[in-house]
């Protein structure tokens, strides 16, 4: 019991130090610093607004820039968390080969680093919402819950990519393409309501759907996350976690052997 506590407190302090290292070192030599966290969703927002000019995308009576930006900010959090988790084992090889720590701290710290970016981009979202005079309600209290589920999902997928990516680097390299694909199969550029009904059930098996719709609801519509998609998000997320975590636990013993 005592030993378990010791390991936990050690892991927490390592997690903190790693996250601090990743956040500070990333921006220390850049001109724009933390502003880089905003650039990715902003660029996508501009692209999507252009695309919407030539295609028919419903905006559910919300100004389109803020409609898509409210989805892009949490999406960027999710996608960066996954993309950074994937190489987290390989890039921390020098620690893993030398010291025995629970390997989960590495993908977890990648998720936390991305969470920092989320809050940076969140300020711009708030400004945009203020500009379009969008009123917010108590539904915003759902935010921590949505963030937690998003973080768990990113962590689970990150663990999968990191564990196998350590043995075959293809998974690390492929993670960007995976996220690109995922971006367009999630209701970010378009709303869920525009997905054809016969595909809807299958579409909702994508755990990101319920989350993104949830974020959009609490930010823009002052409503709680939509029940059915959100339910599926939680279920699928927990299933993925239940598969990838034990897998990661088992494989992580052998990381030091192959790094």
């Amino acid at each position: 019991m005592l030993k378990g506590n010791l390991v936990l407190s050690q892991s927490l302090s390592l997690l903190r130090a790693l996250t601090y290292r990743d956040i500070t070192s990333r921006y220390r030599k850049s001109l724009l610093g933390p502003a880089w966290a905003l650039i990715q969703p902003l660029v996508y927002m501009v692209i999507f607004t252009f695309i919407r000019g030539v295609t028919n995308i419903s905006n559910e009576d919300i100004p389109y820039p803020v409609f898509t930006f409210a989805a892009l900010v949490p999406w960027t959090f999710f996608s960066n968390a996954v993309i950074r988790s994937a190489p987290s084992i390989v890039s921390n090889a020098n620690i893993i080969k030398k010291i025995s720590v629970p390997r989960e701290v590495f993908p977890l710290s990648a998720v936390l680093t991305s969470l920092f970016d989320f809050f940076m981009a969140g300020t711009v979202l708030a400004l945009l919402m203020a500009y379009y005079r969008i009123s917010i309600g108590l539904a915003l209290l759902w935010l921590p819950v949505l963030l937690l589920i998003t973080a768990i999902l990113a962590f689970s997928i990150g663990m999968f990519l990191a564990s196998f990516g350590t043995f075959k680097r293809d998974l690390v390299m492929g993670s960007t393409i995976l996220m690109q694909f995922w971006l367009f199969t999630s209701p970010i550029m378009y709303p869920l309501s525009q997905v054809p009904d016969k595909w809807k059930t299958l579409y909702m098996m994508n755990p990101v759907v319920g989350l993104i719709e949830g974020y959009r609801n609490i930010f823009l519509k002052a409503a709680p996350p939509p029940a059915e998609p959100f339910f599926w998000s939680v279920v699928v997320t927990l299933i993925i976690l239940a598969i990838t975590w034990p897998l990661f636990r088992w494989i992580s013993q052998y990381f030091a052997d192959v790094l």
């Binding site: 601090y20 290292r21 030599k29």
Partner: peptide
């Protein structure tokens, strides 16, 4: 096994001490 495992070149000496300490289980 290796004393400098996990040091980050962009962080200052003091920040790296904290980092190393955390890696070593403080």
């Amino acid at each position: 096994i290796e004393l400098n495992a996990g040091m980050h070149p962009e962080l200052t000496g003091r920040e790296n001490v904290r980092l190393l300490g955390a890696i070593m289980g403080f």
